[in-house]
Nucleic acid binder design. Sequence first.
RNA 1: GCCAGCGUAGCUCAGUUGGAAGAGCAGCGGUUUCGUAAACCGCAGGUCAGCAGUUCGAAUCUGCUCGCUGGCUCCA
Length: 632
Amino acid sequence: MVKVKLKRKNFKVEKDSRISDLITDKKVIAALLNGKLCDLSKEITNDCQLELINFSSDIGKKIYWHSASHIMAMAVKSLFPKAKYAIGPAIEQGFYYDFDTKKRFSPEDLEKIEKKMVEIIAKNIPFERITMKKEAVIEFFNRREEQYKVELVKAIPDPEVSLYRNNDFIDLCAGPHVPSTGYIKTFKLLSIAGAYWRGDIHQSMLSRIYGIAFPDNKELKAYLKKLEEAKQRDHRRLGTELELYSIFEEAGSGLVYWHPKGALVKRLIEEYWLQEHINAGYLIVSTPHIARGHLWHQSGHYAFYHEHMFILPVENEEYILKPMNCPGHILIYKSKVRSYKDLPLKYAELGQVYRNELSGTLHGLLRVRGITIDDGHIFCQPSQIVDELCKVLELTLKILKKFGFDHYKIDLSVRGQHDKEKYMGSDEEWIRAEKGLVSALDKMNLEYARKQGEAVFYGPKIDIKLLDALGREWQATTIQFDFNLPKRFKIEYMDKDGQHKEVVAIHRAIYGSLERFIGCLIEHYKGAFPLWLSPVQVVVMPITNKQNKYANKVFKRLLKQKLRVELNDKSEKMNYRIREAEVQKAPYIIIVGKREVDNNTVSVRKHSKGDIGIMKLKDFLNLIKKDLGGND
RNA sequence: GCCAGCGUAGCUCAGUUGGAAGAGCAGCGGUUUCGUAAACCGCAGGUCAGCAGUUCGAAUCUGCUCGCUGGCUCCA
C-alpha cells in the first residue's frame, strides 16, 4: 500500500494502482503527481501528493485542446493518408495542427474532418502513452515518411521520447492527454490558414487548421457568440457606420481618409497629446514628409529597410518619403553645438510617415501605410537615462488611463545571447540601457515580459501592446534606445570638461500610430466615445415642429458653451430621431416638447442609460461639465 | 510577400443546375406633428471589383490583375 495525499485528505491505495482508479469525477482529465503533469492512466508507485486537473484551469484547457488537436490529426490522417503532419499545439484560445498536403484544404474538407472527428470521439479511443528510445522513434517516423516528425525528434535532447497512440494513430507528444477521445464533448473547426514550417519564410508552407473545443455545448455556443459580438465592435465596421474614415481601393490600400467625424476625433487626440507633451517639457518640432536619399543612407535605414520605403526619383537623385522622424529631429539637434546644460533635450512631433508594409499585413486602421506617429526623441546624458525613462512611462500611463485603457501587455525586448554580432553598440551600452529600462519599469511597478532576442538591431526597448476586440495584441507605445544614430550622425554635446561627448538617444512614441491607436480606441469604446472625444456631444430635438423655435434656442445656447451640438428637427417621429442619435452613439440627447417649453426645461437622455429626467438647461450644463472633467 | 477564402446598390445581404439583377435600411419627393431605439405612400439607385477567355447566352465557369478577410512572416 502507498499513501496518497489529495485535497488535504490522506488515504491509502494499492501500490501500482492507476490515478483513474481513485476518481469518479468524469470532469477530471489529468493530474499533477508530486507537482508533475501526468495522464490519469499513470500508476502510483510511491507515497505521493496528487492534484486533479479539469477544463476550468488554464492548464486543463491546454490539455483538453491539445487532445482535440490530436483527434483532428487522426481525422485528417484517415481522410488524407498522404498528408504529413507537422505540429499541433494548444494555443491561447483553442488549438491548431499543421499539415503538409498536396492539395490544400477547402472549407468542405473542414466539414468532412469534423464528421470524422465526431466518429473518432464516439469510438472513445484511449490515449496511450508510450516511451521509446530516441533512435527508435526517428526510425519509426522515417519508415512512415513523416519528415517533419523526424526533424522534431532529432531536436529533442533527451535519450527517451514519449509518443501518444490512439489505435494506429501515433504522434510525437510530451502529453499529457485526456484519457480517451470521448472526453472531447463538443468542438468546432474555425479556419484554414497557411503557415511556414517552423515559422520560417524560407521553409515550406503548410496548411493549418484552427479549432476550439469545450466540455459543454453551452460554452461552445457562448464562445461563438462572443466572436460574433466582437465583429459588431470591429473598428472597420464601426468606422463606416459612424462615418469616421474610409480606405479607398482606388486611392491605395493602407491610406486612411478621415471623414469629418473621424478627423475631429483624431484632432482632439492630437490636441490632448500636444498639451501633455508641452507640459512634460517636450519642444514641438515639425519636419518635412520627404528628404534626400542621402539622409537615409547616412542613417542606415536605406540599407536595412529600403524595400519598405517609398522612393521617388527627383532630377538626378532619389528622394524618400520619410518612414520615420528621427533623422529630421537629429538634424535640428545638430543645427548648433549643444551644451550639457541643454540636456535632456526633448523633441516631439506628430509626424506623418509612410512605410510600404506588405500587402498581406494591412488591417483596417491597425496596420496602415500612411502612419501618424507621435514621435519623440530624447537626447540626454547617461546619468539622465533612468529619470527620463520614468518620465516617459509616467506620461504613457497617464495618457493610456485618459483613454480608459487598463488592459495592456508590456514587453522588454533585449538582444539575443548568442548572436551579439547582429546588434549595434557595445556591451557596456546594452547593459546600461537594459538596466535603465528595468529600473524604470520596477520604479513604476509595472509587470513585463522579458523577450530575449526581440530587440531591434540598434538597441533594447519597451513595448506596450493594446488589445483589439478579438484579443489580438497591437503594439502602441514603444521606448527604444538607439546606439546607431548617435554614431552615424555624430550627435554630441559639450560636457562640463570641455569635451565633445556622444549623447544617449531614446526614441519614444506613446500612441505609436495614431491610426492604430484610434482603431483600438474605437473597439475599446465600442464606438461610444466618452464625451470629450465624441464628434457630436449633444443632439437637440423638438418633439413636434411647434417646439422648433425653443429647440433652436437651446441649440444655440449649447453652441455658445463650445459644445459640439446637432439640431435634429427633421419631420420624422421622435422615436425615429432618437434611434438615429443612439445609433450614432451621441452621448446626450435633449428632447423638448410642450412640457419643456412651458416650464423652460429640457428632457435629457443619456447614451446607453436612457431617459435621465427633466431639468433646467443650467443643470444640464453642470452635468456636462462634470462629465467632461471626470476623466483626468 | 506567402496560404486559403471572399468581392452583387451608400450600408447589410438574397440571387438554385449558366437562361430578363433582387430585398431591407440609408437617400430623394410627398403625406404625417408624434413624449424616449425604426410612421405611411411613391421615386430613384448596379459596367455584379477590373480585364480577357469559354459559351447561342456569364453575377454564376476559366485565367490574370486589383482589393478585402482569416492566418503565416514582418512591423525600423
